[in-house]
């Protein structure tokens, strides 16, 4: 990567980190909301709702996807096509499985009568965890776009590296938020 490209890349990095700062504030406010309203005076107590198995399962998938993404990052840096693709593919699969588990979790909550407007606790749970799930879904779309970019000849190796690096920042960030969700949303109420 030559000097001018590096400068542009650095701009983008700084910009994206600031953007992640914005996301951090967003989630911080939602975490605060959750903590203010949970447990709610009426409606179910959180531990009646949460199922520890489900949380462990989804956490396993999402957190390991950060690891597989690192493989892809190394692949790009070393310019090893197969490594990159392998890492990305695994990440994509794990992400989709995570999202599936998440959707299933929401679905089973709703089946049991724990809907969005059942109580303020559940409302703040859904707006927070739901927004996180939306980020995962967006990330999945982004990864699919990356696969296509990877094959395009107009996209030079250095540009591809830039694109994937930015994505990996996003993905690690989304993973990091999940850790906080485990710690602040689930853990206090899972016995």
């Amino acid at each position: 990567m030559h000097k001018q490209e590096a400068a542009l890349f650095q701009d983008k990095k700084v910009g994206f980190f600031i953007y992640l700062g914005v996301e951090t504030i967003m989630f911080a406010v939602l975490f605060a909301t959750y903590m203010i309203f949970t447990p709610a005076a009426n409606g179910p107590y959180p531990s009646e709702v949460f199922q520890s198995k489900m949380v462990m399962l989804s956490s396993f998938f999402l957190l390991s996807s950060s690891g597989t993404l690192m493989v892809a990052e190394r692949g790009v840096r070393e310019r090893k096509k197969n490594k990159t693709l392998l890492g990305l593919r695994l990440t994509l699969v794990l992400a989709i499985v995570f999202l599936g588990v998440e959707v299933y979790e929401f679905y089973s909550f709703v089946q049991e009568g724990y809907g969005l407007s059942t109580s303020v606790f559940l409302s703040s749970f859904y707006v927070l965890v739901g927004l996180h799930a939306a980020h995962v879904a967006f990330g999945i779309g982004w990864m699919i776009v990356l696969f296509i970019q990877f094959r395009r000849t107009k996209v030079s190796a250095s540009l591809y590296e830039e694109k994937q690096t930015i994505f990996s920042y996003y993905w690690h960030f989304v993973d990091g938020i999940w850790v906080f969700i485990i710690l602040l949303v689930y853990l206090p109420y899972i016995t």
């Binding site: 406010v29 909301t33 407007s117 303020v120 409302s123």
Partner: peptide, 30 residues
């Protein structure tokens, strides 16, 4: 960056209150 992000979340919650029947800002549960 900080202030408008907080506003965005406030509006996001208000949107849920208005459109989807949550009660963040209501007198009885929120």
């Amino acid at each position: 960056l900080i202030a408008f992000t907080v506003l965005a979340i406030a509006l996001y919650l208000l949107m849920f209150d208005r459109l989807f029947g949550t009660g963040f800002f209501s007198g009885d549960e929120g």
